[in-house]
Amino acid sequence: MTSPPPDNHLSTRSDRLSPIPVEAGVGLRHPHMSDFVAGTPKTAWVEIHSENFFAPGGPRLAELDAVRSHYPVSCHGVGLSLGSAEGIDENHLSTLSTLVNRIEPGLVSEHLSFSVVDGVYVNDLLPLPYTEEVLAIMVRNVGHVQSTLGRQLLVENPSSYLTFAESVIPEWEFLSALVERTGCGLLLDVNNIYVSAENNDFNTNQYIENIPGDAVHEIHLAGHLVDGEGEEQLLIDTHSDVVAEAVWAVYEAALEIIGPRPTLIEWDTDIPALDVLLAEAEQAQRRMGTDLRASDVA
């Protein structure tokens, strides 16, 4: 099935569920808000951090409504804590559901990680051991989220700085099993694959070749930081810089192996001028190939 990409500057809320086109988009961040409210930046779509719009009112929601009238929007969550042993916080899920009903996003995504334990929220995406016990918990939580929202959830691979001795399933197999058992999709963060591969010594191509490519409905790209020296050197997923050359190479491998997908530039720390951000998106667009712009996601 092939459909032309929507013309964002003509699209309105009347095309209710604007799908995210197979093109490059950018993360919507506060310093650029007035530009996107006006609809002037030329980008195919934008992604929000869902939790930033969880307030019952105020200017942010009004701004988001205006942005949504100009662009397809994807909702990317950071606080649902899909890997929590204690299950999903119903209040949080219900607020997400309200936002999803209001914005009618093209995609909804979260992470393979946890951040809530005993009612305390840790503002980081903490890693999970990959075992049958944890897989069963993830399957239960993802299934619950999908049935509450009434739609597919994309699950993003994390960046990690360690592995657990008790892990018995490679991350790509864990994600494949999650897709198989829940029908969820995947958000492939190429920078995270690279960061984790460097930190934990695995091969990026082996990872990409072993995840179900048909389930990948979005790709993330971001900048990282090289921190420390010698044996203690680590790559840190900071979203604070341009995409590294080595990460562009992994992106091209992913395009080769999986095919083009909606691709997002994330930039969360030391946020640059808008044109710098848009130039990164243009670079992703070029690498995707303009002749592929009209092809649909598998």
Binding site: N123, Y161, L162, N199, G230, E232, Q233, L234
Partner: peptide
Amino acid sequence: GRVQAARGTPERRLGVYHTNTIVS
């Protein structure tokens, strides 16, 4: 005792999560 580092020390690896949390 439950985490592994491909290089360097587990202390260093775990410390990243503390730094990320406090800084953010």
